[in-house]
């Protein structure tokens, strides 16, 4: 039975991957991601002038790049299916909603992972020019991948809310921005004067940044991993709830 479950997820994932690569979505995403990552790393981040043997100047931009690029990939996940009517086809197949959600999510995540993997020249550059800590680099990449996954899961959730892709894009950018800025002093400062301390801390705890920073420094913290995984699972679970609730037309 677990074999047939995995197969079901794989069937959906495979179809979805095919969809990314037969349409321009995957290519546009990958190219734009690589161009922007290069621009920020070398031109803005002054990668060479830093004289560091590490990926700091490169990875630091990822939360901001993903903020716009990931919702652009994720907004179509459910909105498009709903609009084309294929949602009806997909959800009446003998699959669970969960298998469909997971399959679609994994496919999109694989596209993001591919884009990330294609930044390998920078790793080669760093290794050629200096003697970096390979473990820290691997951690940095892991952090970037998890962050992309978290944003993607949020986009999946907002995509299930509306058949309008623009609405779902904006919603997910806003939620991701909140996750990005939640621990930032100006945001907590807005609350600190009137809200109780537990609320301020609670809001700050939503932030992805501390966990992302830790991974960039090479600190693999089980709480950090738990944070990302639970964020992803929560957003995907909510996707399921919304899909079930919105099967009205």
């Amino acid at each position: 039975m677990s074999c047939s479950r995995t197969r079901n997820v794989w069937a959906v994932c495979k179809r979805e991957l095919g969809g990314y690569f037969t349409s321009p979505v995957a290519y546009v995403f990958i190219i734009i991601f690589l161009v922007l990552a290069g621009f920020f790393t070398f031109n803005v981040g002054a990668f060479f002038a830093r004289g560091e043997a590490g990926l700091g100047a490169f990875l630091i931009w990822h939360p901001w790049l993903y903020l716009f690029l990931v919702p652009a990939v994720g907004m179509r996940l459910w909105a498009e299916e709903r609009k084309a009517g294929t949602l009806e086809l997909l959800l009446t197949m003998p699959l669970t909603t969960w298998q469909a959600i997971l399959g679609k999510f994994l496919a999109a995540w694989l596209v993001l992972a591919l884009a990330l993997a294609l930044t390998f020249p920078i790793v080669i550059t760093v290794c050629t020019l200096g003697d970096p800590d390979k473990g820290v680099m691997a951690c940095g990449y892991l952090g970037s991948l998890l962050l992309a996954g978290a944003y993607l899961a949020v986009s999946s959730m907002t995509s299930a809310m509306s058949r309008n892709q623009v609405v779902s894009f904006i919603l997910s950018v806003v939620i991701c921005l909140f996750l990005l800025l939640a621990g930032w002093p100006p945001v907590t400062g807005m609350l600190v004067n009137w809200a109780p301390a537990w609320l301020v801390d609670g809001v700050a705890a939503f932030s992805v940044m501390p966990w992302f920073d830790n991974l960039q420094k090479g600190v693999v913290d089980s709480r950090g991993l738990l944070y990302f995984l639970s964020l992803i699972l929560f957003a995907l679970f909510t996707t399921g709830v919304i899909l079930r609730g919105r099967r009205t037309n």
Partner: peptide, 28 residues
Amino acid sequence: VGYLPENAPVYPEMSVTGFLRFAAEARG
């Protein structure tokens, strides 16, 4: 059950065989 929904929705970017293969796999 085999279901033909109203307006016969299909994935526009897929090939006919690709679409049918997916539908077969989704049905095990």
